[in-house]
Structure formats: C-alpha cells, structure tokens
Write a protein that binds this DNA or RNA. Structure first.
Length: 993
RNA sequence: GGGGGUGUAGCUCAACGGUAGAGCGGGCCGCCUUAUAAACGGCAUGAGCGCCGGAUCAGCGCACGAUCCCGGUUCGAAUCCGGGCACCCCUACCA
C-alpha cells in the first residue's frame, strides 16, 4: 500500500515584509464577516478576481427583444447577412404562405420559428440561406369579410362593381399582411420582410395565369360537369378545406321503387326499398345501388299497425339483415318470401316512384336500373342506396361508369330548375324562423310519394352533415360545370408519384401519406364561382363548347396582367386578348376564378424562378409546413410543378405536427386552453417560445401550456446564467492571456473534448433538421459539465490565482472559447439572448453574432482517452461529494472547503486519478489519496466500487482570501492568507504601483 | 367509417429485442453575501397494487413489480405481432 498526498506542496516562501496592500475599495465595516477568532484580519475581497459583467441576471426579454430588433433594423443586419453570404452555396427554404387574415396563432409561430431556426442554422453552417416570406391573399375568407361589410351597410355584393370589390379585398389582405409581418418579426424571424412575396402582386397574378395557360395548352385543363359541395347561401362551390361537419337534423324517407323488369321471378311485383336522408334528391334519382356480396330478401307485408303506409300483401326487397328494422320503421310485419344474393339483383330495372304522379307529366318516365356499388354498407338503411348522379360523389362515379347522364335538377340558389316535374321552383334548403336550416321540399316529396303509394315510412335523423365553414349553412351536392386539371391526360398522376419517390421526406412517413393521396385523388377541380382571385383566363368557343387553346391569346393575357393585374380580365374588352382575327361574339369569357390552392401551388414559379429574388432558385431545398399540407400546399405545388415542369418544386419536405394543449387536446376557445404567441412574447419573450420549438419533437404533435412554458423559462435561466458567468469571468480578458490547448491542464482539455462531441451533434442535428435531442445535450452540458463541475472547480483559480498563472490563463482561454461557441451555437435558436451575450463580450456599433458562422472546433481537441479518464475522475468525485453530504447533514461541515478527506481508491480506478489534484476537483482544502483496498467504515457508493472516503475536517486556519483551510495560513507576509494568496496580493500590489 | 400518427417519471425527451435513463421541476441540506439569491453547489427522491394512519413521513403486506390496457411470439418485449382504449392530423359523410 502506498500513500500519496494529493495536495501539491505549497513551497513558495514568504515574500516580503511589507504590509499588505489593500485596495482602496475595501468594503465598508458592515460588510465585515471575519470570524471572531481572527480579529485582526484584513478584507481581501478587493484582491480577488470576482466575475464582473453588466449582463443582467434577469433577462427582461419583453423589453430587450424589441430593442434588439430596432438595433438590427438600424444596422441593416438582414442586408449585411445577405452580403456576407454572397457567393456561398445556396440553401432555399421556400416559405409556404399563410393566409393574410387575422392575427397569428401558436401554429403560425411554431411554423415560422422552425423555418427561422433552420434558415439560421444553414447560414451559420456557411450557406447562403435567404428567406423570403410570403402570403396567400386571394380566396373566400377575405371575400366574405368584405361581403359582410357590404351587408352591414345594406348593400348587395352583386350591386358592387367587381373591380371595386376586388380592390377592397386587396386592401384587406394588405392590412393583415402588415399586422402579421410585425408579429412574425417580433418572434425573431429574419428574412426579406421589406420584399415579401404575395399571391396578389401583378407579377404573381400574371404568372398564375401563365401557369394555367400551360395546362390549357397541353390539354389537361377541361370543363366538366360534376357534383360538388355547393353552398346555396354563398352560391358557390366549396373547396374541401372550406367544409366543416356539424350535426344536422334531416328528414328521412323509405321509398319503394316498383320493379318493372325482374332479374329473378321472385322480384316480380315487388318494390325495392331505399332509405335516404335527402328527400330533395329524389327528383335526381337515376339508379339504385346494391352490394353484390350481401344477402337480400323479398318480404310480404303480413299485418300493419296504425299509421303504417304499407298494406298487406305488398312485397318489398330489403337487405336480409335489416328486415326487422325496416318492419319496425314501417310499422308492419313481414313474411319472408324469398332470399337472394346481391348478384342475383343485377339486371333488375325499376321505374321512378313518382312516374305516375298526376303532376309528373312524363318527367319521371325513365328506367331506374339496379347497379352494384362497392360503397354500399349493411349497417344502416335497407341495403339499397338511391343514386342521384348529380348529388353525390359515389353517385356520380357510378352513373358515369354505367353511362347514365347526370341530370341538372337544382339551380345555384338551391331551387329546382323549371324543368323539374312537380317541384319546379321549390327550395331544397331554407332557414327556419329559429335560425336552423331545413329542407322545405321534404314535405312535398313525402306527399308526392304517398300519393303514388310508394312511401313506406318517414322520420327524422340527426347526423353529421357538411356545412359551409363560413356561413355554417348545410351544403348540398350539386351538379355544376367546373374546370378540372386531368390527372391522366398528360400522365400527371404518374409524374407526381415519381416525383414523390425522388423527394426526401422528414419524417419519412410523409411520403406514404402524400403518395396515397395522389394515388387516389380525382381530377383537380380548380374553379370557384367567386370574385376575389385570379380568373380562369379561358375563352370557350360557343360553337364547339371547347376552350380556345392559343398561345398568343395566353401571352396577351399574361402581358396585360403583368401591367395591370388580374383586374384586366374584368376591365378589358375580350378583343384585347382574342386579337384581331376573332369575333368576341363567338366566345364565352369564363368568369370563374381559380382555386386558391392553384395560386399557392404556383408560388415556386413566381418566387423561386425569375430574378425578383436573386438569392433564391428552383427547385427549393426544402418546403416546411404542418402535416395538414400533405393535402394542401405540398400537393398543389407538386401537381402544378409536375404538370408544368415534370418534377417536384422541392428536394425535401419537412412536416411538423400540430400544437395541442398540455393534456394533448386541441386548442379551442370553448375549452379555454388557447395559448397565443402574442401573450407568450409579451410576458416571457420570443426566446422562450423559440426555446419551446427547439426543445420539442416537432415531427409529432407538440404541446404547450403554462407548465411547459415554465420549464422553458427554467431552461432559459440556466443558459442565461452560464453565459453571464462566462462573461463575468472574462472581465478584462485579452488575447495576450490566451494559452494554446496543448499547454492546458487536462481539465481544460476535457472541456474542449466535450465541445468536439457537441459540435458533431450539432452538425448532425442541422443535417437532420432535428434539434431537440442536441439541445437537451447542450443544456445538460451547461448545467452538469460546466456549472456543476468545470466552472465550480475553476472558481478557485479564477478568483485567487495570480493573473499570469497558467492555470488561470488556461481556464480563461477555455471560458472565452466556451462563450464564443455558446453564443454562436445558440444564435439560431435563442437569437435575442445570443446576440445580447455576444454584444456584451464584443461591444460594437454594428456587430452581431448573426454575421458569424458556427465555430470551427479543431478535430485535435477530440480525446477519447482523456474523456474516459475523466469519467472515472468524476465517478470518484461523486463518492467524495456523497461523503461530504453526510458530514454536512451532521453539521460537522458547511462548505466542502472545510473538509480534507481521506480517499481510498483501489487499483482499478487509481491510475485514473493518480496525477489528478483531487482536492481541486472535489473543492476541498486538501485530500489524502491512498491506493488500496477500502477499509471498513468508509463512505462508499454501490455503483462506484473500489472507492471509499473517510471524511475529515480540514485543519489549520482558513485563508481569508481563498477560503481554503490550511496549516500554512498565517505564515506569510500577509495576514490570514495562504502562500498562494499572499503571493497574489503582492503581485497585485506590485502591478498597482 | 377509412387512412396516417402518437401514448415511457409532474414536464421535455432517451433507450427501440438483452440491466428503464437524462435534464428540468418538486423535496431536503448547504452556501459563514467569492455566479450576491428569479443566483450557486450537494444529496435523496420520483415509473405497481393494497394495508395501517385524521393526514404526512415511516412501516407492513401482496406482487416479485414498473414504459396506456389486454393477449401473443421469444430464453428475454417499452421495443416485434394481434386486439382494445385515448388523443391528434387527413379523409368520408353513410344514402
């Protein structure tokens, strides 16, 4: 067994006999805190290098951030960032445009902060990553706002000039762009805010028209007829995104369709029973669908109850499993006559149940065939679905597949066309006195069916039903002429699928998601019967009904739009576009506008291409939006670009989840769980919100609430105080003090090694666009490695060593590297605080950390062997601190400097600590390290075998300067201090002269 | 209804077929004002069920435990498979 004192001998002899040089700034007497047994001791506080900085502990972000934003504007930081990036490799993150309507919500904040973080990390990796924000301006929500205003003034929109109306919409969008711009900037998002793109600039409108022209010219744009979700209140077709589902009470009817041609003898004289919740669609009925796999039954009415509409002896065909339910609904009992499968029904033909109505006048004199439909289900109804091809997607497809013409029955205002027998002019939907919508024609239909003897029953049902997201009125499916882009004519679907395969998706599940949507989607309906948008710039030749496909015409339209905006479509005579050779009377000018998804799908064309923003280029490296945009912008952009350019407009697509409350529920006003970014920013600060984004796994849904934000504030405080301490420690640091890494103690080299690990992690995180794991690591580094370990240990050298001590110089060199590195690493994330700290270190008129790039961490700092050794040192340290804790609990010691323990380390771990100052590492006044077995009675930790600590109090006097308790104290020229401190005081006095 | 996703300590996240971990928070202690306190350090907690207590701590018992629940594959499952439940996104709107 060998004994080795771990403390370095203090060999410096007493220096001089001169009295201690005490700084004139010696504290006032009330600060005196000397122990009573050393009444004559001096106060050495002024000779200690305490941290000094103006960087405040309390951030005051709500005040600080606007100040920094003003500074950045004053020094044109954005312009200088662009200048600094000139010539570098480009990284283009193309902004998905938010809708310019209303204040930002937390989802906007997440999206834009994430974009900003990625843009900034790419910049700091040394790329040219310009960010041009954009806005989506056209569309129904704004149009509706203006209409609302008109209604409030008692005006009808139709009385207002369309160009004037569009101008109001434009002003409205412009107003909200200004509001949102300021809100985004407040979040610290950096970009070309003075030159954002919008979908309503003349150039954008012209480009959109030009892009549409490409689909026109290649034949994929066509006019078709299709039932679409239609609002009779707004008199327009609605996009999928504009539809909401709410409960709605509908009248239901059971109707028997008399069989006129039976595929099987059992069906002769029977009626096929359908059930529907939309009686108003009965005039549009043209077929009946059944499930080929299901079992059906022919039943005969045996008895009837009061109020039943059937009569004994009548035969009906229904789904076998629903016999009892239908009997109950029809208030009668059935006898089973025959059973047959769905397939047996093929070929059966019925006539319309209203064919023999006295007022029918031949209007319902047509065959109603039974057709197999795979959408038929057995859980509700009768197993038969009435098919009105003009009133449903399934209906339409089945009709088209079987060559059935799609009838037009309902006019745009929701009334039947004059040609509709019995019901002409009646409304299918109206608002009752109680404000609820109902179908006024339900009753007449019931009466008509009754009159024909074909009504079996009627009732009411409450069910989820589509409603207009704005007017909240129920919607109908209505057959309308619409413009479509074919998914097949030019192979658009295949091109899009190939492009999906060629795109990187982060996370990868996004690929399947968009793929399955593109695989199954119908042709793209791009028309809207509205006013605020880019018109469908097409002329239809009256003679042929075909759109005019003429490039010169397209070019003239585009040129006009470029000069005057899309209003030119409304203000110019058609001859201006048609040219001299054509008679405008021969053409119909289309007045529909484009779906706003087509607008935003074209942003790549007018933002990334061309020279308006020379820092951008197509295709974009990245599109980044919420996961709902698989259906929206990711797809509209993909289809537009594949149709016109044969490839996706992006190389990679990143999606993030949705923001939920702390319990994982959707935010809603009614639940009162809405967190607004404006509130967070004004009470806690933008950096807190940015920290929340950075620390969250945004590939999935993420949560926010008071507790989560409080956690972010705590994390922020740790980062801030680490920066603050480093700033204080570096007070007066100059390059002359710097020491090369090779000359540093192991502890410093270990810190540098940790930086190489974190650096590698950061670069990985940037490449993967995934920061939360790395950020946790960085925070742990600050809290555990720096604050609790490295900085704590180095306080002694920092405060008490002489200014030229290599140990102190090494520490300050590393702290400078740490501060520099932390500021730069934090810059993309907590952009305000990083700047604040940077400026505290490098005061300057126009400097900024955001003009920097990530530091180059020298590869030679990496030292795995050293790291392994220091892992062992820290394990031993834990045993010591654990032992001291018991002493503290027993009131034998307070601070660890009051201890001078005996440390036993066996042969396994001893080599790791043999040449380490364990008293320095453990912050004790001394330590005796013994290599060998741990004797009984020592403090041990189960997970650090072979290490034992025998705590002992430090003996001697407490050095008044460094607080170590040492025997040598008092034996030097200065009173009450150790040799090192006495020397340091001398040096200080010398340099002060 | 269909498609996709998620579910691990109070919070944020690890581990992703082989000992369930970190940081933060909360708790206790120290810091003799040397990160001057909205600071700093240390320690111990924290992922079943039940019993006994007015309650808390401690204690005891069951289990032989712990990754939303149930089941399966496996020597071994948080991890793979199946079935539920909950929540989120997309979609449909069911006649």
């Amino acid at each position: 067994m060998s004994c080795a004192p771990a403390s370095k001998p203090t060999s410096r002899p007493p220096a001089s006999c001169s009295p201690p040089a005490i700084s004139p700034k010696a504290p006032a007497p009330w600060c005196r805190r000397m122990s009573e047994n050393r009444p004559m001791s001096a106060d050495y506080k002024a000779t200690v290098f305490l941290p000094r900085t103006d960087f405040p502990m309390k951030a005051g972000l709500p005040d600080l951030e606007p100040r920094l934003l003003r500074r950045w504007a004053d020094i044109d930081l954005y312009g200088r960032m662009r200048a600094a990036a000139r010539g570098r490799e480009k990284f283009v993150l193309h902004d998905g445009p938010p809708y310019a309507n209303g204040h930002l919500h937390i989802g906007h904040a997440l999206n834009k902060i994430l974009k900003d973080v990625i843009g900034r990390t790419q910049s700091m990796l040394g790329k040219d990553a310009d960010y041009v924000p954009g806005w989506d301006c056209h569309g129904l929500p704004i149009e509706w706002k203006i209409e609302e205003k008109y209604r409030a003034e008692g005006l009808d929109k139709d009385q207002v000039d369309v160009v004037a109306f569009r101008e109001e919409c434009r002003q409205f969008a412009a107003k909200w762009i200004d509001v949102q711009r300021e809100e985004f900037k407040r979040l610290g998002v950096v970009g070309d805010w003075n030159h954002p793109y919008t979908t309503m600039t003349f150039k954008a409108e012209a480009t959109i028209a030009a892009e549409l022209g490409k689909f026109l010219m290649d034949g994929s744009l066509y006019r078709g007829a299709k039932p679409v979700m239609w609002s009779v209140v707004e008199k327009t077709a609605l996009a999928e995104a504009e539809v909401e589902y709410h409960d709605h009470t509908s009248v239901t009817i059971w109707v028997g369709f008399p069989v006129v041609k039976a595929s099987r003898p059992e069906l002769d004289g029977a009626k096929v029973v359908i059930w529907t919740t939309t009686p108003w669609t009965m005039p549009g009925n043209r077929a009946i669908a059944f499930g080929a796999e299901f079992d059906y039954a022919v039943v005969e009415v045996e008895t009837v109850e009061d109020g039943a509409l059937a009569w004994p002896g009548q035969r009906y065909v229904v789904l076998k499993d629903q016999i009892e339910q239908v009997a109950k609904d029809a208030k009668c009992s059935f006898l089973l006559v025959a059973t047959l499968t769905g397939a047996d029904l093929a070929g059966t033909v019925c006539h319309h149940p209203l064919k023999f109505h006295p007022d029918a006048d031949g209007g319902y004199d047509f065959d109603v065939p039974l057709l197999a439909g795979d959408f038929v289900t057995t859980d509700t109804g009768t197993g038969f679905v009435h098919i009105a091809p003009g009133h449903g997607e399934d209906d339409w497809q089945l009709g088209v597949a079987n060559g059935i013409a799609v009838p037009d029955t309902v006019q745009p205002d929701g009334t039947y066309y004059p040609h509709v027998a019995i019901f002409a002019g009646q409304a299918v939907l109206a608002q009752g006195k109680n404000g609820k919508y109902y179908s006024p024609v339900a009753k007449p239909v019931i009466e008509a069916m009754k009159a024909c003897g074909n009504l079996l029953a009627h009732g009411k049902v409450e069910h989820s039903y589509p409603h207009s997201w704005r007017s909240k009125a129920p919607l109908i499916f209505r057959n309308t002429p619409q413009w479509f882009i074919s998914m097949e004519k030019t192979g658009l679907r295949d091109k899009a699928l190939a492009a999906i395969d060629a795109t990187r998706f982060v996370p990868d599940q996004g690929r399947n998601r968009i793929r399955s949507m593109v695989e199954g989607r119908p042709d793209w309906c791009v028309s809207r019967q509205r006013a605020w948008g880019v018109p469908i710039t097409v002329f239809v030749e009256k003679k042929t009904g075909q759109p005019l496909r003429e490039q010169e015409v397209v070019d003239r339209i585009v040129a006009a739009f470029m000069e005057e905006g899309a209003d030119a479509w409304y203000t110019s005579p058609p001859s201006r576009f048609l040219g001299n050779g054509r008679d405008p009377a021969d053409y119909e000018q289309v007045v529909d506008i484009l779906d706003v998804w087509f607008d935003s799908g074209c942003t790549h064309a007018f933002v990334l291409e061309g020279d308006t923003w020379p820092n951008l280029r197509a295709p974009a490296n990245l599109y980044l939006e919420g996961s709902d945009q698989h259906r929206g912008w990711f797809q509209s952009s993909l289809l537009e670009s594949c149709g016109t350019r044969g490839r996706a407009p992006y190389d990679a697509v990143l999606t993030h989840g949705f923001v939920l409350d702390e319990d994982g529920r959707k935010m809603s006003k009614s639940l009162g769980n809405v967190v607004s970014p404006q509130d967070v920013v004004s009470t806690m600060g933008g950096d807190i919100l940015r920290l929340w984004v950075t620390g969250s796994d945004y590939s999935d849904d993420l949560r926010i609430g008071q507790e989560i934000l409080k956690t972010q504030v705590d994390i922020y405080r740790r980062l801030r105080n680490t920066l603050r301490y480093l700033l204080g420690a570096l007070d007066g640091f100059t390059d002359a003090e710097r020491l090369p890494a090779g000359d540093m103690p192991e502890l410093e080299r270990w810190v540098l090694h940790r930086l190489t690990q974190l650096d590698a992690g950061l670069r990985r995180a940037c490449a993967d666009f995934e920061f939360h794991g790395w950020f946790t690591e960085l925070h742990t580094f600050c809290a555990v490695d720096l604050s609790a370990f490295y900085l704590d240990i180095r306080k002694d050298a920092l405060y008490c060593d002489t200014a030229d001590s290599p140990r102190r110089r090494a520490a300050r060199t590393v702290m400078d590297i740490l501060l520099d590195t932390l500021c730069k690493w934090l810059a993309p994330f907590t952009c305000f605080t990083a700047e604040e700290a940077w400026l505290a270190r490098h005061p300057s008129e126009d400097g900024s950390v955001h003009l920097e790039t990530f530091p180059d961490i020298p590869a030679e700092w990496r030292n795995e062997a050293l790291a392994a050794k220091w892992d062992a040192v820290r394990a031993v340290r834990r045993v010591v601190t654990g032992a001291l804790e018991l002493e503290r609990a027993a009131k034998r010691i307070g601070s660890s400097l009051q201890a001078n323990p005996l440390l036993y380390v066996d042969g396994n771990l001893y080599p790791a600590i043999a040449d380490v100052d364990m008293d320095e590492v453990c912050i004790t006044s001394g330590m005796l390290v013994v290599e060998g077995q741990v004797p009984d009675g020592c403090f041990i930790l189960a997970d650090v075998p072979g290490v034992g600590v025998l705590p002992r109090p430090a003996e001697g006097e407490k050095c008044q300067r460094c607080w170590k308790v040492l025997h040598e104290v008092g034996k030097f020229s200065h009173q009450g201090v150790c040799g090192r401190c006495s020397d340091a005081v001398d040096r200080l006095a010398g340099s002060a002269e």
